Simulated scan of single mutants.
Amino acid sequence: MKNLIYKYLVYIIYFLGIGMTSSGVVLMPFNTMRYSVILFIGLSLFIAGSIFNEVVIDHHHMTAIDSIKLVILSLTLAIGIGMISGGISHFKESPTYVSYLIPLGIVISFISFAFKNNFKLNKKEKLMVFTGIIILAVIIFIGLSIAASNMAMMNMTPGGDIFNGGH
């Protein structure tokens, strides 16, 4: 029963952390102070969840270096996922900004995930995977950039629904 509760808590902490990170990353240009606080809380939650998962649930005894590595990789993973998630959710608010966020988030989150989970690849596999991720990110960037410019051509004003004052 304790394992169920712990794993549930980790999921809640992870998802709340990612949700808040997503909002903070994508909406920060619109209200820097407010969304910086939300971003900080989201990242803190995600790190807490990562540490709780490693230490309490998986019973890993980490050195100081392992702890620092976990924090850094958790931060970059959360930021990368937040860039993707927030970008998808808020494309209409800032299409040009999001055109950069989503592809960059894919690259950052993939690399962070690979290192955090200690995947071992040979040189050829690393080159193939890295090249594939970069190609995917470039394709997505081009597609989003085209969509963003088409929104501007159709006289769709960036700013989206969250800035219209109603729900």
Rank of each mutant, 00 (worst) to 15 (best):
F52E: 04
S85I: 10
G82Q: 03
G82C: 03
I106W: 01
A48Q: 04
Y100D: 00
N117R: 04
I142V: 15
I133C: 10
A137G: 10
F163D: 08
A114F: 05
A148Q: 10
A137L: 08
F46E: 01
V129I: 13
S149R: 14
S112P: 05
I146H: 11
S94V: 02
V107F: 12
N164K: 15
T32H: 11
N150W: 09
L73E: 06
S112G: 08
M153F: 10
A148H: 06
I135K: 06
F15W: 12
S50L: 02
Y8P: 00
I47E: 01
K92N: 08
T96S: 03
A64Q: 11
R34N: 05
L4S: 02
L43P: 03
T131R: 05
G143S: 12
F141M: 13
L73G: 05
E93C: 02
G166A: 13
M20L: 15
V55Q: 08
G87M: 03
F130P: 00
Y97S: 05
M151W: 08
M28G: 08
I88G: 00
A78F: 07
G49W: 02
M154N: 14
G80L: 02
L77I: 03
L75K: 02
G82T: 02
A78N: 07
I135Q: 05
T63F: 09
T63K: 10
I79E: 00
G19Y: 06
L73C: 03
T21N: 07
G42D: 07
L70R: 12
L144K: 09
I146S: 09
I18Y: 03
G105I: 04
G166F: 14
G160Y: 09
L101T: 01
V37E: 05
L27K: 15
N164F: 11
S89T: 10
L144E: 06
G143W: 12
Y8A: 09
M20G: 06
I18F: 10
T157L: 15
Y97H: 12
I72L: 15
N122C: 05
G143Y: 11
V37F: 08
I162R: 13
A114H: 02
V129R: 00
I81P: 00
I162T: 14
Y14N: 09
N117C: 02
A147H: 11
S89C: 10
V37L: 10
T96N: 03
V138E: 11
L16M: 12
L4C: 00
L101A: 08
K120T: 13
G132V: 08
L4V: 02
L101I: 01
F30T: 12
I79C: 02
